[in-house]
């Protein structure tokens, strides 16, 4: 889903670029406020973690494979804005360091994956969470549903941008993108839910959006220095 250079027209690149610069700026502002500016290594480790996790491919069907996106995971663990900053960092490193995703399409990629796939999907998750009964199973259910939707929403946004740019007609691109990503989304949902479940068990203090009483688990106090 990393759009290379040349697939988008100037208008689409400029608009998504402006929105993304604003969002990254706001993410940095929130990071300064919430992380007292010094816990940079932790945020960077989360970004490196998403990068490394994206290198683990999982099978889809018929020999194709999808990889993990991580937007909902980052948002559920760190909150929507820090989560989106983390995903934007991953995209920035991929575009500049590894030529994965174009530099003029960076705005669109950040828009699709760090805004639609992370911030918007976090609010979808929060909506599900508010509607469902307050227990562990429905928390994980909300995580799973939001992760599946996040992949669909992000790939849908990608198809719309390609159509607006006159690259591929919406009638062909949208069903094709959504069809493939409906399957990739299942993998995303399984992985995100498994990760959140394990982290809830071991370090419930790290799941930022978990507001129920924690059930056991142990907490390693390694951050007692300040």
């Amino acid at each position: 889903m990393h759009i290379p250079d040349g697939f988008l027209n100037a208008g689409t690149s400029a608009v998504t670029g402006a929105v993304s610069v604003g969002a990254v700026g706001y993410g940095l502002y929130r990071a300064r406020k919430e992380l007292d500016e010094k816990r940079v290594p932790l945020l960077a480790l989360c970004a490196a973690f998403v990068f490394a996790a994206q290198m683990l491919n999982f099978p889809v069907a018929g020999g194709t494979s999808g990889h993990f996106l991580g937007g909902v995971l980052a948002a559920v663990l760190l909150g929507p804005w820090l989560g989106s900053l983390v995903i934007a960092l991953v995209l920035l490193v991929q575009a500049l360091g590894f030529a994965d995703g174009g530099v003029t399409a960076l705005g669109a990629n950040v828009f699709n994956m760090a805004l639609v796939g992370t911030v918007l999907s976090y609010f979808v998750f929060a909506g599900f969470k508010a509607l469902l009964p307050r227990n562990r199973a429905s928390f994980l259910g909300a995580v799973a549903a939001a992760s599946w939707l996040s992949v669909m929403l992000a790939s849908g946004a990608c198809a719309v941008e390609l159509a607006v740019s006159g690259t591929s007609p919406l009638g062909v691109a949208l069903p094709a993108m959504l069809g493939v990503h409906a399957i990739i989304g299942i993998g995303e949902a399984l992985i995100t839910t498994a990760v959140v479940a394990v982290v809830l068990q071991v370090r419930p203090d790290l799941v930022g959006s978990w507001d129920l009483a924690s059930s056991g688990g142990y907490a390693l106090e390694t951050t007692g220095v300040s």
């Binding site: 996790a53 993990f68 498994a194």
Partner: peptide, 10 residues
């Protein structure tokens, strides 16, 4: 893969 990713995160 989910369990691996979780371990990697922790």
């Amino acid at each position: 893969v989910g369990h691996m990713v979780a371990t990697l995160f922790l």
